[in-house]
Design a protein around this nucleic acid. Structure first.
Lengths: 185, 185
DNA sequence: TCTCCTCTCGAACAACCTGTTCCGTTATGT
DNA sequence: ACATAACGGAACAGGTTGTTCGAGAGGAGA
C-alpha cells in the first residue's frame, strides 16, 4: 500500500494534475477551464471538486512538486549564482514555463514564482552579511523584479538571447548595486 | 459643436469610462464585469458593445488619457530622474494605481505600463550614449522590471516606504550597473 | 421649426463557465 | 465478503459574455 491515500484518490488526483499541465501547454493557463480539465482527465465534475477548489488549487499542487525552481543558496562564490542554472533549466522546460509565466498566464502564478524567488534572494543576501531591514526588502524586490522581467520577456520571445547572455545582463544590471550595498556594511 | 462626435456619443463614452474607473477603484479591475459597468453607467448593453470591444478596450481608452505616466526624459542630470516624480505621483493617485496595477489587476494593464516605461528608459539610455543593441534591451528590461516590482509591491502594501526611500532603493539597485554599462562605451 | 439620420434602449437570446447536489454504482482495504 | 469510501453523471442555479432586433428618442443641419 504505497502512499497512504486510497489508490483511486491517487489515480484521480494524478489524472487531474496531468490533464492540467497538458492543457496549459496547449492553451496557456488562463484559457484552460475546469470543464476542459475534467474532460481531459476523464473524471466526473463532482469528483474534481471533491479534490480541488478549482483550477488554481490544481496548479499549486503541481508547483509544489516542481523542485527545479528551488536551487540551493551559497554564501561564497559569485552572488546570485542561481540565475544561470535557472535560465538553463527554463530553456529545457521552455514550453511549460512559457505557459505558466508568459503573457497568457495568470497573475497568481507569477506571484507564486516571485514569492519563491524573493525568499531565495533574501536568504542569500542575509547569508552574505546584509542586515535584515526594510532597505534589504526593497533591494530583494528590485533584484527579483529584474530577473522575472527578463525571464518573462524571454519565454514570450520578446527578446532573443542565450541563457549566458541573459545571465550576464542580469548580473551586470543588479550586481554592482548589490555589491555596493554589501560593502557598505 | 465642441468635439466632432455626436453629443450622445460623447456622453455615452464618458459615462462608461467614468463607471469603469469608479468600479475599478471599488473592486479592482479583474472583479469588474461588463454588466457592472453598464449598470453603473446606466447604458444599454448593446450601446456598450457599440462603443467598445469589452472591458479592456475601455481601460485602454482611459489609460491613453492619463498623462502623468509620461514624464519627460533628460540626458543630463542623474539617470532615471523620472522615478522619484513617479513614486510621488503614485502616492497621490494611490487608490487608482493600486486598482490598476495591484494584485487584483489584470495582466494586460501592467503589460501596458511596462511598455510605456521601457520606451522611456530606453530613450534615456540612448540619449546618454548607449548604443542600440540587444544588450541594451536586456538592461532596459531589468531596470523596468525592478521599478515595476517596487511599485506593485508598494501599492499592494506588501512593503511600507516613502517615495524617497523607494527612489533611493531603486537607484541603489540598478544605478551602479547602468553607470558601469554607460562607462564601458 | 422641421426633417432626416444616428444613436440608444431594452429585452431576449445562445453559449459558455462555475460550483453544488443527488444518488446509484464501483472499487478498495481489511 | 463486506463495510466504507470514492466515483460517475446528470441536472441544477447563478453568473458571464457578446449579439441581435425593432421601436423610440435625440441631435445636427437646413
Amino acid at each position: 500500500m504505497p502512499g497512504n491515500p486510497d489508490r483511486r484518490v491517487r489515480r484521480t488526483r494524478q489524472a487531474i494534475q496531468r490533464a492540467l499541465v497538458e492543457l496549459v501547454l496547449e492553451k496557456g493557463y488562463e484559457a484552460v477551464t475546469v470543464t476542459d480539465v475534467i474532460d481531459r482527465a476523464d473524471v466526473g465534475r463532482s469528483t474534481f471538486y471533491a479534490h480541488f477548489d478549482g483550477k488554481q488549487a490544481v496548479l499549486f499542487a503541481n508547483l509544489s512538486e516542481m523542485a527545479f525552481l528551488r536551487p540551493a543558496i551559497s554564501a561564497d562564490g559569485p552572488p546570485f549564482a542561481f540565475s544561470r542554472a535557472m535560465f538553463e533549466h527554463v530553456l529545457e522546460q521552455r514550453r511549460l514555463v512559457r505557459a505558466l509565466l508568459g503573457r497568457r498566464s495568470g497573475r497568481a502564478v507569477t506571484a507564486h514564482g516571485e514569492q519563491v524567488l524573493r525568499d531565495l534572494v533574501r536568504d542569500e543576501l542575509l547569508a552574505r552579511g546584509a542586515p535584515a531591514s526594510m532597505s534589504l526588502e526593497l533591494t530583494v524586490t528590485c533584484v527579483v523584479g529584474a530577473f522575472m522581467a527578463l525571464l518573462v520577456r524571454w519565454v514570450d520571445e520578446e527578446i532573443t538571447a542565450t541563457p549566458a547572455e541573459l545571465d550576464e545582463a542580469f548580473h551586470a544590471a543588479v550586481g554592482p548595486g548589490v555589491r555596493e550595498m554589501l560593502a557598505r556594511e
